[in-house]
Amino acid sequence: MSWLTDALKSSLGRKLIMAITGLFLILFLMGHVLGNLLLFKPDGGQAFNEYARFMTTTPVIQVLSYVTYLSIIIHAIYSILITRKNKEARPIGYAVNKGGENSTWSSRNMGILGTIVLIFLVIHLKSFWYEMRFGILPTVIYPGVGEFKDLYSIVAAAFTQWWYVLLYLVAMFGLGYHLAHGFESAFQTLGLNHKKYTPLIKKIGFGFAIIVPLLFASMPVVMFIQSLA
C-alpha cells in the first residue's frame, strides 16, 4: 500500500486529512448543538438527562463518538505537522508584512483559533464528558421512566460560575472564527470550487460560523442568568 501512504504523506494528502476530519467535526457540531438545545426545555432537565443516556448507551452513537474523538486527535496532530512544515518553508520572515491587505484575519490565525478551541475542549470534556462516563453523578428518578444520571444538575451548577461562562464565550468566539475560514476551506481542499455552488458554500459557512457558536454560547449565558433569578 505504499502508493497510498505516499499519497497521504504528500502535501495534498495531509490537507485532505485536515479537510475530511474538519468536515466530520462540523457534522458533529451540528448534532451536538441541536441535542443540547434540550437544556432549554423547562422540565427540570428530564429530556436532557434522557438524551444524555441515549447518547452514551446507543451502539451506533458510540461508534460515531469514537470517530469524533479520532477526528479531533488527527485534526490536532496534523495541524501541528502542517504548521511545522510551513514554518520550515520560511526560516527568515519579513520585516514588514501586511497580511491584512490580501487575506482574512481568521484564515491567517487558524492555529491560534484551533488552540483556543482545543484548550476549551479539554476543560469542557473534563467537566461533563468525563463526569458522565467515569465520574460519580447524583441520580434522579423520573416516574414511569426510571433512574437517570443527573447530568443536568452538573451542567446547571457549572453555569452558575461567571468565569466558567466567560470561558465558554471566549471559546465560542474562537470556534466562530475558526469555522468562518474552516468551513469553505475544507470544500476548497476537496477540490469542490465551482461558480455554480461555491457562493452557496460560502454563505452556508458564514451562517454556520455565526449561528452554531451563538447557540452554544446562549446555553451557559441563559442558564447563568436563570441561576441569578
Binding site: 490537507k15 502542517i82 510551513n86 520560511r90 487575506s103 482574512t104 484564515s107 487558524m110 475560514h181 476551506s185
Partner: peptide, 15 residues
C-alpha cells in the same frame, strides 16, 4: 523543494 502547505488564505491570488 520544501514549499509549505496551502491553508487557503487566498493571499496568493490576491497578490
Amino acid at each position: 523543494e520544501g514549499f509549505g502547505l496551502c491553508t487557503n488564505t487566498g493571499a496568493c491570488s490576491a497578490e
